[in-house]
Structures are given as C-alpha cells and as structure tokens.
Amino acid sequence: MKDASAIVVVMAFFVSWLGCWLPIAAVTLKLLNWQPIKPLQPEQKLPLMVSLYLLAPLVLWGVIWLTNSSFANYGFVSNFAFLSSLGFGFGLGIVSIAILFTCQLWLGWCYFKDFNIKQLVSISLPILLIALLVGGIEELVFRGFLLTELERGYPVCTAAIISSLIFAVLHLVWEQRETLPQLPGLWLLGMMLVLARISNRGNLGIAWGLHSALVWAIATIDTAQLVTYTGKVSEWWTGKNQKPLAGVTGIICVLGTSLILWLFSVL
C-alpha cells in the first residue's frame, strides 16, 4: 500500500508539472515562430527550459500542501549551514572538472584555445545563473521530492536507482542523439548526487552546489569553445560528441568525486 501511495504522488506531480507547462510551451513556440519540421535551436530551447523549471517549485508546493509535507522534508532548508554546503559542493564540482581536463591536457588528449578565454567575462555570469536554476530545480525534484517519496515504499538503494534512472532518461526530452551515449554516465551522476544528499545529512546543499558547478563548468567550456580534442585517443575515452559523461574519463571523474563524498559522509 505504501508503494502504491508513493507512486501515485510521484505520478501526480509529473503529470501536473507537464500539464501546466504544455500550454506555456505552445505559446512560447508560437512566439518563437518555430516550425514543426525544423529541430529546436539552442536559443529556442532556453526559454522552454526556463519556463519548465520555474514551474516546478509551484507544482511541488501544491503537492506539499495536499500531502501536508514541507520543502524541508525534501532537503531544502534556508539557513547558513545550507549555504555553506552549497558552497562546498560547488567548489568540489569545480575541482573535479579542473582535474578532469588537467589530466587530459597532460596526456595530450586535448588543448586549450587561449584566445577564447576573453569570452569568459561576458558568458560566465549568465551561464552561472542558469546553472544554479537547473541544478537547484533538478535536485529539488529528483534528489529531493522523487527520492524522498520513493523511500516511503522502497529501500534507499532501490529508491536511488529508480530516481537516478528517471533523471537520466528524462534528459532525452531535450536532445536524443547526444544524450543517448550519456545515459549510463547520467545515471551514475544521479547516484553520485544521491550520495551527496546522504553525506549532507539529508539536505540538498552539497548536491545543488555540485550539480550547478558541473553544469556551469561544462557549459562555459562548450560555449566559449575553450577545448579542442586532438583525436589521439578514441572519443569513447574523452566523451562521445565531446560530452564528458559519454566517455571513460568522465565516468572516472564521477566515481572519484563519489569517493570523496563517501569519505565525507563517514568522517
């Protein structure tokens, strides 16, 4: 019975979220003059994504009101300790990405385009704001709401596996060709972020900071085209379609960060 109750609440949230967003998406696409025969361009995806993500807390607030729960139950609290955890997670994410690309540079698998660094001044802040929004909402939904609800009916390990699988598969909504090779990495990333919440005693601060840092670092590198791969090794090592989570080194990076989180949780 508890299993069914958890599934009903989860399904109600996602159906309500999608149902509220679809009319907004339709109007947005109309305003953007999108043609169904043409694929969505990045500048068209951004307003769709932002509107979807901004709706999530409102829909979740409705679920909380109906179920007599609270945002705190889902790991979102407002205090200094939460902000400190967010900062720690963000720093850990930046260090992880720095180590990843430093190793690839040292091995001769890629090189930096120094002349593109000047672009960082204009793009860093906007990307950071989007990364904080994406990281915060996805953590609230997947490691907060979804994981907590699934734990009502399943062991924490099972709940983590299911929530991470849903997290990975839903990324196919925005991009299929580039996302498919990343699915194992995205699932593993979801498991790492579950560990981040566990290591933070149930709060989402570390997970939010870590997730946002990874999004910000990778998006900034891609947008500024700071890195060029040499082709010295197969892209399955560096990341298919230049996506770190679709390569062995990206997986190793996630596993190494997970080890740090595990050590942090047992200290």
Rank of each mutant, 00 (worst) to 15 (best):
L245K: 00
G19M: 11
Q242L: 08
S124I: 08
L120C: 08
Y154V: 05
A4Q: 12
V50P: 00
V59Y: 10
L83T: 07
L165W: 04
V156G: 11
L100D: 01
V15K: 01
E235D: 15
L18W: 05
A6C: 11
L55N: 03
A207S: 15
L60T: 01
M192V: 15
D3A: 11
A26F: 12
S212I: 02
S212F: 06
V15D: 03
T67G: 04
W216R: 12
S258K: 06
W208E: 01
I252S: 01
W216S: 04
E235M: 12
G136I: 02
Q119I: 03
F264G: 01
L100E: 05
G135E: 04
T220W: 00
Q176A: 10
P39F: 07
G185S: 06
A224K: 10
A213T: 02
L58S: 14
E178K: 11
G62A: 13
L29G: 02
M11P: 00
S124N: 07
I117D: 05
A131S: 15
Q104T: 12
I94D: 04
L18E: 09
T158Y: 07
L29R: 13
S212T: 02
S234Y: 14
K113I: 08
L214Y: 11
C20S: 15
A6H: 02
G89L: 04
G190H: 01
L83S: 13
L147H: 10
